[in-house]
Design a protein around this nucleic acid. Structure first.
Lengths: 245, 245
DNA sequence: CGAGCACTTGACGCAGGTCAACTTTGGTGG
DNA sequence: CCACCAAAGTTGACCTGCGTCAAGTGCTCG
């Protein structure tokens, strides 16, 4: 059993008895599915440990990676409205999740406002993360996408108390490529390019973040020519004549 | 004032008095901002009419389009956890939204379970849509991305009771490009290509969906060569004069 | 300890980004 | 109502980043 409120990052309030806050735990071996795209949904999940890959089958039959989930992330929420999972979730390493059955989800939320609030907070933050992820797929050179991804990943690892310097990537090159929208060979070359610049050091899936500032510069590269984008925090060519502070 | 439950697509239950279900309305002229990225958040919104463009400033200073919102969509939800908007929302045409102040959001949700439930349902569906949007940015040729986008858009229009055949795009080419991760010129060329194949007819922002099945075929094109991906019962590598010329 | 998968590196061609010129649309004022 | 202008869209030419194919090396796990 598992304290859901703590997992969702709620402040440590004590309005509910211990047993009321707990949910059953489910453990997964590496490389197994938590749920499959299209399957009838019976529960949503909150990650307690491990890394998950969220993906869906693309229109062309390929695998589209939507993102990676870590401690505190909610999985399968899209099934609340549809009753079916719209994407699959795979454990990349040994993992465990808290299980919240859909059947009594709303009863639970109604009878425990603190849980409802914690869920909303977590979902909100997750959406913010999702929006940020859209940036790594923007129309920028592969090297910039990888730099953005690494910064994003490092930041999330840091939130789980991990070292900022030494990071173990639990993800293979192919999946990184499928997240960034580039071929795995290009991922390799981009890793090499970042190494040459001295921003990182890579050996297999072990990663050293040597120069975060340098990565931020590269993350600003624009398509076409590899030059850092001009600082245009002032601009905004007057379309949308909203009062831009 | 505005019936929030109906707007969120909740079944027409009558557990609450009329006045309890209503929220203030806000109207927006075309090309004005509902809120700006980074601004302190005081409310979330539910679209009643019009089309919104959701975007954020990319790391390189460019504008990244995250998606387009229509009736029933929730805007600004990412601010629930952060207190600040993580993206901007612009009305592309005259629009109106229901306003739900953040200050008493949780009180409201606690005292009105039906509203909480409706919100969860809507958010869940929205996440499903967001995941589907990731498909249009996948590593596939521009023509396939546009085909996917048009199918996605048409389906959403259909849900608002619109015609499936004749569609008015409220979005300009630049913004479509920024959503799909391709240059506006390429959007133009992709429109032209789909026209030549006879799948659509375009004149400015008026769009005719002539051959939905054909669009689905093109949506399966893979990167590199322009061939339909898995199902190769009728392989024709280069120029098939169109199913509907 | 071996086999298969993950990763790296090189060569080559093309889809699409950039630049540029032109046409059309829509909005505004005379 | 039409002349005018700026923004939006289209089309063409050129060139480069990266996808594909291919061959080789190193891990990981069984």
């Amino acid at each position: 059993m598992l304290d859901l409120l703590a997992l969702l990052g709620a402040p440590d309030i004590q309005t509910e008895s211990e047993s009321e806050r707990d949910v059953p735990l489910r453990r997964l071996p590496p490389r197994t599915a938590l749920f499959h795209e299209g399957a009838a949904a019976d529960a949503i999940y909150v990650v307690r440990a491990g890394t998950f890959k969220c993906c869906r089958t693309d229109a062309d039959g390929g695998e589209q990676v939507l993102g990676f989930a870590r401690r505190g992330d909610v999985l399968g929420y899209a099934a609340v409205g549809l009753g079916r999972y719209t994407s699959s979730a795979f454990a990349l390493e040994a993992a465990s999740v808290g299980v919240v059955p859909l059947a009594d989800l709303f009863n639970r939320l109604r009878s425990r406002p603190a849980l409802d609030r914690a869920l909303h907070q977590a979902l909100s933050l997750q959406q913010a993360g999702f929006e940020e992820l859209a940036g790594v797929r923007a129309a920028v050179p592969a090297e910039a996408r990888l730099a953005r991804f690494l910064l994003h990943w490092a930041q999330r690892m840091a939130m789980s108390g991990h070292s900022l310097r030494q990071i173990k990537l639990t993800v293979n090159r192919r999946d990184i490529g499928r997240l960034l929208g580039i071929a795995p060979e290009t991922v390799s070359r981009a890793f090499a390019a970042l190494s040459v610049r001295g921003c990182i050091a890579v050996k297999g899936r072990m990663l050293d973040m040597l120069d975060t500032d340098g990565l931020h510069v590269i993350a600003r590269f624009r398509a076409g020519n590899a030059r850092p984008a001009p600082d245009r925090s002032w601009a905004t060519p007057r379309s949308f004549a909203g009062l831009n502070a």
